[in-house]
Design a protein around this nucleic acid. Structure first.
Length: 328
DNA sequence: CTAAGTCTAGATCGCTGGTC
DNA sequence: GACCAGCGATCTAGACTTAG
């Protein structure tokens, strides 16, 4: 049998409600009594009963997270950071990789306080949820707060950075075949930036990886290297794609960054540990996690205080994968 | 009349917070 | 610092109904 406040009350010789107040640091309990109770609770190994606390407070201190994929590195890293951020606020997290509908049903039974939804491939979200929800994705015609990233600006930053290093023949490797607005935004951002700088843009620059995985980046790079188009720099649109790009370039005996500069989307620490530490552009994963969790907690407390749309600004993180364009 | 099934009110769990 | 109401799900005891 676990220790309850009644056991502590019996031992101290006070009522159990006094124990409850003491453990919650109420000013209604004398300091020495409070101290005695807290000390004894520790000695007896008292752990509060969450079910009972939830019964009274109508709060579970649990946040639900609906995430579509655990396979790719960047989304998994973001989950880890979100979990760390949630813990800092004394909340716990449950993760669901089921569909949004199934996850919401489960979350209702768990009585979570709120949830974060990774809106994959521009899924049309319902107008309302049975609990406060914040989404990571693209703004829709409803009143659910969205946290998004300025993907176009990320691509502008990447292209301008390479251009400053003298690169003009820049290839873009990304997945623009699927209905994922995030990827499409990167694609348009790249095109805009190239046009703004007056750089040549043709079908050769744009290589469709037709997927977001390591192998998609690897195969797309092999295809790129087999054409007559010889870029001096490549932009990969995700960590995994860029990891594939690096592997393919090294297999083809390219030295990075001497023979080819590579820059990647996704601002995660793992970029440092690739075969060549990758210069990357994106919103730092810690900042994204912090913004999502803070927005959700504010939304739970006071829905009107939260803007319906927040667009985070990407930053560039220089590592070792970019160099001045070769003049030969 | 008895056994079996159904319904319902009340108690229980651990805890919080207001009142005295 | 004590007392008490009440949170919601679940269980239990007792009252009541039905079928054989």
């Amino acid at each position: 049998m676990s220790i309850t406040i009644k056991d502590i009350a019996k031992k101290v010789g006070v009522s159990y409600s006094t124990v409850s107040k003491a453990l919650n640091n109420s000013p209604l309990v004398k300091p020495d009594t409070k101290e005695k109770i807290i000390k004894l609770a520790k000695e007896m190994g008292y752990e509060p009963n969450y079910a009972a606390q939830r019964l009274v407070s109508k709060r579970s201190n649990v946040i639900g997270l609906i995430w579509p994929t655990l396979e790719r590195v960047a989304p998994s890293t973001l989950i880890t950071k979100i979990n760390e951020e949630i813990s800092k606020h004394n909340y716990s997290m449950i993760l669901s990789i089921n569909s949004i509908e199934e996850s919401i049903d489960m979350f209702k039974r768990f009585q979570i306080d709120g949830g974060i939804v990774f809106n994959k491939e521009n899924y049309q979200m319902p107008d309302t949820f049975p609990m406060p929800i914040v989404t990571y994705g693209v703004k829709q015609q409803n009143s659910i707060p969205v946290i998004d990233v300025n993907y176009r600006e990320a691509m502008h930053t990447a292209v301008h950075y390479l251009h400053q290093l003298g690169h003009e023949k820049i290839a873009f490797l990304g997945d623009f075949s699927i209905v994922d607005e995030r990827q499409v935004e990167k694609y348009h951002g790249f095109q805009q930036a190239m046009e703004n700088l007056g750089l040549t843009l043709s079908s050769h620059n744009l290589v469709n990886t037709a997927g977001l995985d390591w192998y998609d980046g690897y195969m797309a790079t092999n295809r790129l290297l087999s054409t007559s188009f010889k870029p001096t720099a490549i932009i990969g649109t995700s960590y995994d794609i860029s990891a594939g790009i690096i592997r393919a370039l090294r297999q083809a005996n390219y030295i990075i960054p001497k023979d080819m500069s590579v820059i990647s989307y996704d601002n995660i620490p793992q970029m440092e540990n690739l075969e060549v530490p990758l210069t990357s552009v994106g919103v730092p994963v810690e900042e994204m996690a912090q913004q999502m969790v803070e927005t959700l907690l504010n939304y739970i407390e006071q829905p009107s205080s939260v803007p319906l749309s927040q667009i985070l600004t990407p930053k560039i993180f220089e590592r070792a994968s970019c160099a001045l364009a070769s003049t030969k």
